[in-house]
Design a protein around this nucleic acid. Sequence first.
DNA 1: AGGACCAATGTAACCGGTTACATTCGCCGT
DNA 2: ACGGCGAATGTAACCGGTTACATTGGTCCT
Lengths: 337, 337
Amino acid sequence: MIENVTIRDVASEAGVSVATVSRALRGLPSVAPATRERVEAVAARLAYVPDPYARRLSTAKNHTIIVAVPYIGQWYYSNIVTSIEALATAAGYDIRLYVASDDLQRKHFVEYVLPHAKRVDGAVLVDLSVDPDQVAPLLMRGMNVISIGPNVEGVVTIEIDNYSGAREATEHLIGLGHSRIAMLGGMPGGRIDMSIPGVREQGFRDALEQNGIPVDEDLVRNGNFSIAGGYDATVDLLASPLPPTAVFALSDEMAAGAFQAAREGGVRVPEDLSIVGFDDHEFAEAIGITTIRQPVAALGEAAMQAMLDALDGRPWTGNLELDYELIDRFTTGPANT
Amino acid sequence: MIENVTIRDVASEAGVSVATVSRALRGLPSVAPATRERVEAVAARLAYVPDPYARRLSTAKNHTIIVAVPYIGQWYYSNIVTSIEALATAAGYDIRLYVASDDLQRKHFVEYVLPHAKRVDGAVLVDLSVDPDQVAPLLMRGMNVISIGPNVEGVVTIEIDNYSGAREATEHLIGLGHSRIAMLGGMPGGRIDMSIPGVREQGFRDALEQNGIPVDEDLVRNGNFSIAGGYDATVDLLASPLPPTAVFALSDEMAAGAFQAAREGGVRVPEDLSIVGFDDHEFAEAIGITTIRQPVAALGEAAMQAMLDALDGRPWTGNLELDYELIDRFTTGPANT
DNA sequence: AGGACCAATGTAACCGGTTACATTCGCCGT
DNA sequence: ACGGCGAATGTAACCGGTTACATTGGTCCT
């Protein structure tokens, strides 16, 4: 077990003061070249590494940001984290992960962050609907906060137009002649709020109604945003006396579940059932799912860029809306009834 | 911008010493109940939160572990991180993410960790083949290291028997009468080493040879462990004069790419082409891919448990091997030639 | 020769906690 | 009445860096 070698060890070994060591090793000016060289040699020989906590305690800069996501196991989130991580690392920032996997943890996010607030430069919230008054204490402590997805009062938000995306997906199905269109997604409580699922559902409903198609509440199901949830819901839908001819899933995971249910039930896609997803999950292309593409990597990059700019004292003044795109593949076709 | 409230502020406000505040707030004994109550009230009123860096600087415990993965965007890795994160959070540990997305970063992993070594309790390496002499300095500094996947000398390893898994997958195809069996995976340099892809490839080769089927090197392709790579390789394979009747992909992503290539090329699965994957990716069931199931969550949990035990002074004495399982679904069928 | 100036370096305070050790004080036994 | 004891609390050193300010010593100018 190697004993700790501190800056004082290096100083005494090199025959200089700790201040000189600190300056020499960080490349600050006003250190004689010969001295610097000697200090560096000693530091290398002793395998000295500065203690990051001590450094952070004495400086204002922390070089750490928190990334908070609801889940990390889902494609969408892990890819956002990937792109954030890449930029963060390149800029010399560490990232600290917070997974708010249930509602409770989502509520308590601020409590988690608060202790770190003084020592973390910023937080990127991904799909986390937090109250403005929850974020306020963070902002007041000088933290930079960026949101991907939900609009949070007073926080720069990176988003796509989920409402229009859902509308376009639905109208694509309507344009193919479908009218019995199911939707997979649904808020647990049945209510529509400003969260992403809520906004997408509203787009779905408005598209139907403005095309003169009443919303059949029995076709609006909760697919839990998972493959299994989409599967279960679709199995149930297909077993009903008058099954839908199309399904709009609010995520590609649920669309894949629907696809699986159709295959196992002997229902042909797209002849008997059209499926549209949302996200353009990497597996969507392999399966051939028609979907709304989100620029996932770009969302993360933009958020991190906004963060870096803010940390450099050039905070963004407004939100950024990136473009979505309908990708027409093989799970959608003309209505067949 | 809220000014920092420190333990001294609380102390003077409550009319006690900093030591008493420290003890009171941490629930240590020998603090009078009345005093404790008063201190807590003052702390709450001032919204005092202890600075984690200062705390860590003065104590030995860090409550932080590093999780290092090659990629975070892939299902396998993000799920491992998920299960590690859950246990870590429950045990009061923070996790710090390191993404070694290219070989250079993999080599430099130790350089990244070293500065943190004093202040991090441990590291979980996921699929990171590092030299024993790279890990040695970490161990010497008292860090706990656990490896998921590759065996690292002197480090507790959690693994599945990748060799036998690959053999079983291959033999499943052979049992169905296939003999022109392609493999997707392949090491970049063409060499087989002790990494996971290398071990799986060896299982594939041995299965063929021990069943009297010579390995056709033209059927061993590099699919880059991605959907796109599996797609490209399969498109190419199917275009050859004597295409394979089966494909064993070393990951489900590549299997999905093969599936897509078959569908787009009008090649029926499994009638014309059987596909076996590896991992049991969440999308494998939706597509219906026959695959070797890895207990992903269990791998992460076991690793974190080993870590926690080691941190509690009860290090594991040996490695742990978890079971894999062949899941027979709809992408495999009898050879048709 | 003597003073001005500046580069190089050292000293010590500070960041905000924890904790070993010292101190105070009320209560007990004899 | 007094020494002993232990609970409650205070004092100050310490963790390992950074940095404001002081000090040193050499070069250059008049």
